[in-house]
Nucleic acid binder design. Sequence first.
DNA 1: TTAAATAATTGATAAATGTCAATTCTATAC
DNA 2: GTATAGAATTGACATTTATCAATTATTTAA
Lengths: 273, 273
Amino acid sequence: MIGAGELMQQKTQPGRLRQKKVVDFHSVKVACRECSLHQLCLPRSITGADLDKLDSIIERKRPLKRNEHLFQVGGSFNSIYVVRSGSLKTYSPTVDGQEQVTGFHLPGELLGLDAIGKGKHPCAAKALETTSVCEVPFEHLEGLSQELPTLQHQLLRLMSKEIFDDQELMLLLGKKTAEARLSAFLLSISLRFKQRGFSSSEFYLSMSRNDIANYLGLAVETVSRMFTRFQEDGLIKAERKHIVIKDREMMQQIAGTNECCDDSPGNQSQFQV
Amino acid sequence: MIGAGELMQQKTQPGRLRQKKVVDFHSVKVACRECSLHQLCLPRSITGADLDKLDSIIERKRPLKRNEHLFQVGGSFNSIYVVRSGSLKTYSPTVDGQEQVTGFHLPGELLGLDAIGKGKHPCAAKALETTSVCEVPFEHLEGLSQELPTLQHQLLRLMSKEIFDDQELMLLLGKKTAEARLSAFLLSISLRFKQRGFSSSEFYLSMSRNDIANYLGLAVETVSRMFTRFQEDGLIKAERKHIVIKDREMMQQIAGTNECCDDSPGNQSQFQV
DNA sequence: TTAAATAATTGATAAATGTCAATTCTATAC
DNA sequence: GTATAGAATTGACATTTATCAATTATTTAA
């Protein structure tokens, strides 16, 4: 639960440069302030003593290894989580004993918002690679939001964003062809990397083809074929998990979305602690 | 904006009995208290003076006629809305000039939560029949939530429920066959009617086959064929918009969901005012 | 009431995607 | 390093669903 010595920014993806910043025991108290994801998440207006208050309710957990669970289905809800480094997938069991992937979570993104209503996690969260998260006890966060209007506002905004994002995905899953789904998926990942300061045209996917297929409601084989086709058509370069976006415009056309407007700062805020 | 004389519970669906309760000008101040949807939405702990406070920020709008818009895409976000009677659909424009239906909203359900993040409505809302809604100015609601911890909690719960529900739908759209989608859709409508005190085995659909198809990501023809097949198989009786569920268990099996757990009271809360 | 427009259904066919099976590639354990 | 298990790819084929076209039913407007 402590292990402050281990708290560092990790090399999330092989081949991508990223500063390793060791957060030692003494600086834990100001971890939020120092976090490289700071500007992604906190309202500008939270500073000084308020930031310290927020900081004080955060718990840092030891990093998860690949395939370790952050929480299980049905587990009681106590906290929301923010990804610091690495990535996770969330998934639900289906009647026939399969699993259905419901989302992927990159640094700066939240997990657990869907559990507030019932007090239980409707899905499980599993690390796709070595991953560290911040834990925000929900009762404390609620209490603090009561004191800090901007924090309440930010929390509501973030939940709203989650609803908005889910609806975007619904659009995708509901209507589109296999190539549109995969294209939109890749563009979505690309955009999220960009918002975190990474390259939007070159990145590593931490999830398997199987997870992608499951998430997009397609067969693995179809996803594989689409990767091949995209490569043949010069849209991307895909070598296993290493992806290069070569013709973004065409991909947007295939995805049927015009992503030009989604770079607005208003879209970037993530809760991070 | 006023028109208090018009505020009455309407006969939403032909053939379904429902008390007509005229809310006259004098009782507008205690409309929340008197509303038949009260127990669906408000935390039990909000009573007395607090309830009056909440009540005082609500605006009642004149009823919408069929096909009238509650809000348009891109319209600035000021309020969230609660359906009092009737129903609406929300939809987004797609690149190719089509529309994509993103949801249906029955009495006691909320609209507008997806707009908080950006301050603009990402979708439009159009009445499917004569419909009346309560308007809750968001700034006031936020302010009041600051004073009333239970209200803040309820608001967060409802937003969480929205996220949860969207993810359920994603599961549906992502993975299932046409018959599973339609079956799950009908069961979902059935459950929502039940939660509002109506029959869960017999109801009227206010939306067209086209809207259903669009929402489920299918062609109209496919939806039509599925209705026919379900009827042939004795699962339902469908006469235009009038639906009777005849074999719920089998439908649940087809939908691939076991809905047995979804009747819990914890699932029923809706924000209503 | 009748006419016109819209919505829903049905059939025939084409296209997309899933399934099954085999093979190649990659990562992991020994 | 080699063996083994898992992941990804590819091909052949079956199934599902979309598309196109025609018909019928229903609602709306004159």
